[in-house]
Simulated scan of single mutants.
Amino acid sequence: MDVANRLRGLRAMVTGGASGIGAAIVRRLAEEGAHVVIFDRNETAAREVAEACGPDVRVAVLDLADFEALDSLIAQTGPFDIAVNNAGIDQHAFFTDTTEADWRRLLLINLEAAFAVTRAVLPAMQKGRFGRIVNIGSEAGRMGSRGGAVYAAAKGGLIAFTKSIALENARYGITANSILPGPIDTPLLREAINGGGEKLLKAMEGATLLRRLGTAEDVAAAVAFVASREAGYVTGETLGVSGGMGIAQA
C-alpha cells in the first residue's frame, strides 16, 4: 500500500491538534490523505497548522471541558472514521502538593474528555461498521510517575478505557488502541518540568535505551499506522513510543 495514500478518503478528528504532538499528528494524517478537523481552544495556533497543511484540514474551536459544545461540534463536523484523543495537560508536583482542583483539572482533560469524544463518535462508526479510536496516553500510565501521580492515574485509566472500548466494539469493525509516548520534546514537557531545567531533561534521556528525547513525529508515525485500514487486526493494544523506556526501567 502506498503510505502517502493509506488514509485517503478517511475523516479524522484530533483533539489538542494546535501544537506539539497533536500538530504533528494532524500533519501526518493529512500527508497520508485523511481529511482532518483540529479540535482545540487555541484558534490562532490551530489555524496556522491547518493553513500549513492545506484545504483538507479544518478547525473546530472549543474548550474540551464543555461536553455539550463538543457533542454539537462533532455532529456538525462529522461523522468521523478516526478519532484521536490527544489533548492533555500535565503538572510536575508531588501528590501532597496538589489540590482537589488540580485533580479535577487533570482528570477532566486527560481522561474524561476522551470519554466524551468517544461517546460522540461511536454511533456513526458503529453504523458504518468501521472506526479507529486512538488514545494518546503516556508511559506514566503503566509505570507511574514521581511528581505526576494524578496525571499517571488519568493515563492509566485511559489505557483501561481503551481496552474496554476495543472489547465492546470489535463486532462493528472498530479498533481502539493506546499510544504511550515517553519523554517527548514538546512545549508541554518543558512547561511541565518548570524549574527542572536541563538536569531533568538529561535524566529523562537517560531513562530511555536510545538515550534521547523523542519527537512529536515519532508519535505521529505510530498514530498513522493504527489509524490506517491496514491496522484492522490491531486492537486493544498499548504501544509505547518511548525509546525503550519500559525495558530500561525493568
Rank of each mutant, 00 (worst) to 15 (best):
G197Q: 14
N169F: 03
P183C: 06
R190C: 02
L188D: 12
E191K: 14
T208R: 05
T208V: 09
T186V: 10
S178H: 09
P181Q: 08
I184S: 01
L209T: 14
G214E: 15
L213F: 07
I179G: 05
L210V: 15
K199A: 15
L210I: 13
L180H: 09
E198T: 14
E191L: 07
R211L: 10
E205N: 08
P183L: 06
G196C: 11
I184M: 02
I174H: 02
Y172C: 12
G173F: 01
P187E: 13
L167D: 06
A176Q: 09
N177V: 11
T208Y: 02
A166L: 06
G173M: 04
A166P: 05
L189D: 05
N169A: 04
L189V: 11
T175S: 10
G173N: 12
L200F: 12
I184Q: 03
I193E: 05
N177F: 06
R190E: 04
N177Q: 07
R171H: 14
G197E: 14
S178A: 15
M204P: 04
I165D: 00
L209N: 02
A176N: 10
L180G: 01
G206F: 00
I193G: 07
A176H: 03
K199H: 12
N177R: 09
N169E: 10
A176T: 12
